Simulated assay, not measured.
Amino acid sequence: MSEQNRSSGLAPDEQRRAVRRRYAQIASEESSCCSASDSCCDDQNELNNQLGYAESETTTVAEGANLGLGCGNPTAIASLQSGETVLDLGSGAGFDCFLAARKVEDTGRVIGVDMTPEMIEKARDNIGKNNATNVEFRLGEIEHLPIADEVVDVVISNCVVNLSPDKQQVFDEAYRVLQPGGRLAISDVVLTAELPDGVRGDPESVASCVAGASPVSELEQILSAAGFEQIQIESKEESKEFISEWDDDHDVSDYVVSATIEAIKPVH
């Protein structure tokens, strides 16, 4: 499959521009909110809890890394071990990378990839604030990862794959960089009902993690086509509580919910 494999009504280049524009603005404005409406910022601690982060996690990462942009906690499902190499797709300001770095310890390594220069700059500034000597951030698209073949143990991501206009290419790339036996542990949104035309073709809806979501069945097919096995996608109905606040004009929880996406690259 190619760039024709997309859920939104936007052309690929237009979708990338909309996403890059939104997250550049968030990085530049020092925002800690999950949407431009600020509606999810009233109680950041409650949001962190809803996303699955323990208080011990959110308080150990220096301020400025957690922008409240996720829809789950991928490090909670990744079973990270000391010494592993972790890749975060769409790493933003680095919050999940810094959590992963603590779990893989000094013998491990964490690489964050993001296509927004402003986010990369912000994340790199956060390395020193978190004394994260085993973390690095690289500018690049998740469809074309700046990573060598078979060097990663675990690929994580938090509400980013839905933003891509070519999800097959994303998972093909994840498969390429994973070592045999490596695993995928992703939090993302999945489509549960057909989107209205006005939402599907809206750049803001695409960039805010709604209009680019795919149904579970489609994601299963994409992962299988990439070569992954032991595919498990579990929807989180309780996520509707915070997703309903993502848009002031629509209750987008009628169309998308958060999910965990797990899979293994087989050993042949």
Rank of each mutant, 00 (worst) to 15 (best):
V252A: 04
W246Q: 09
E237G: 04
D249A: 09
V199G: 05
S205V: 06
E241H: 11
D197W: 02
G201Y: 00
L139H: 12
S244M: 02
Y255F: 15
V177G: 01
D166V: 07
D202Y: 09
P165H: 09
V189D: 06
S208I: 13
H144K: 13
G201N: 14
S224D: 13
P146D: 04
A225F: 00
S214N: 10
N130V: 12
R124T: 13
A226K: 07
I233M: 04
E229D: 14
V190H: 07
V189K: 08
F242Q: 02
S258C: 11
Q230H: 13
D247E: 09
D166E: 04
D166C: 09
C209F: 14
A263G: 11
A123S: 11
K129Q: 13
A226M: 04
E229P: 06
V189I: 15
S157L: 03
S208T: 12
T133C: 09
V252Q: 01
F137H: 05
G140H: 04
A193M: 06
S205Y: 14
I243M: 06
V210I: 15
L219Y: 11
G201D: 12
E194C: 03
F171C: 08
V252H: 00
E173C: 03
D188C: 03
E173P: 02
I142V: 15
S208K: 03
V199C: 08
D254S: 12
I142W: 02
H144G: 08
L184P: 06
K240T: 10
D202A: 12
C159P: 01
A123V: 12
V154F: 00
V216G: 00
E220R: 10
E136H: 04
E194H: 04
P215H: 14
G227P: 11
A213C: 14
V199D: 05
A193Q: 15
E204S: 14
L219D: 05
A193Y: 09
Q230T: 14
E150D: 11
A132S: 14
T260L: 00
E194A: 15
S224M: 08
I186T: 08
D202L: 10
R200S: 09
D202K: 10
Q169F: 07
V135R: 06
E229F: 01
Q179C: 05
D149R: 12
G201M: 02
N131D: 14
E237N: 12
A123F: 08
V177N: 01
V151C: 15
G198F: 06
D153G: 01
R138G: 03
V216F: 04
D251Q: 08
I222C: 03
S244K: 14
S244N: 10
Q230M: 11
V155I: 12
V256G: 06
H250F: 14
L145H: 02
V135N: 05
I264F: 03
S258F: 01
S205D: 11
P165Q: 07
G201R: 04
Y175M: 15
G140W: 05
R124K: 15
I233Y: 01
V190N: 08
D254Y: 06
V160W: 08
N158G: 07
A148Q: 13
G182F: 03
V216D: 01
S217A: 12
D247F: 03
N126A: 11
E238R: 12
K122L: 15
E204C: 06
Q221S: 15
I222E: 01
K122R: 15
S217E: 14
E234F: 02
D153Q: 03
V154T: 07
K167I: 02
I243G: 05
G181T: 05
V210Y: 06
F171Q: 09
S244C: 07
E241P: 01
